[in-house]
């Protein structure tokens, strides 16, 4: 019974949470209040864990909730229920798009869409810069900023370095300098 309820709730979340992982949080709050599968404190903890582990945040949250209530199977069930609606919707959209791929209108619409998405990427960049390199509007975190400049320089000079190497390297730097 619990399994079925969880499948329905996470399917619903996957279907109605539009706009990325953080959009799942209000749905999870509701779940906490309605079903008591976890408390709001648990939820805060889950958000922290989800943010400190690799992978999409929404997925991490679903796995965490499922696992804590029903073990490995639970984690699988909740995660698969969450992604199921997206897979269906995206495949339908992709199929429709195949048909109009070469139409001039679609090409023109995507040209402006790309520019808008880059605006959103700029916002994401601003957000992570603010959190990482600044401790307030006017105060730069000097240590972090120097590391940023050095790593950026190295990664521009040696184009072959993979993002994975940069992430792993910076994790080590973080531990060494106790950032």
């Amino acid at each position: 019974m619990l399994a079925i309820k969880m499948i329905i709730e996470f399917f619903k979340t996957g279907l109605f949470a539009i706009g990325g992982g953080l959009a799942t949080i209000p749905f999870l709050k509701e779940m906490a209040l309605n079903y008591g599968w976890f408390t709001l404190d648990d939820l805060q903890m889950m958000i922290n864990v989800a943010e400190s582990t690799p992978g999409p945040i929404g997925i991490n949250m679903a796995t965490y909730v499922g696992f804590n209530n029903m073990g490995v199977i639970g984690g699988l069930i909740t995660t698969l229920s969450l992604v199921c609606p997206s897979i269906i919707v995206i495949i339908l959209v992709a199929k429709a798009l195949d048909r109009f791929k070469d139409s001039k209108v679609v090409t023109a619409v995507f040209k402006t869409l790309r520019a808008a998405v880059l605006g959103l990427v700029l916002y994401a960049v601003y957000d992570i810069f603010k959190k990482t390199l600044f401790s307030s509007v006017t105060i730069i975190n000097v240590k972090e900023f120097i590391i940023y400049a050095l790593v950026l320089g190295i990664s521009i000079k040696f184009k072959k370095i993979s993002p994975i190497a940069i992430i792993a390297g910076c994790a080590v730097i973080g531990i060494i300098f106790a950032l």
């Binding site: 972090e144 940023y148 990664s155 973080g174 531990i175 300098f177």
Partner: peptide, 13 residues
């Protein structure tokens, strides 16, 4: 500490 380091990597990338 590792995550704070990774944040810098994300800024770079």
């Amino acid at each position: 500490h590792a995550l704070n380091g990774i944040s810098i990597a994300v800024c770079v990338l």
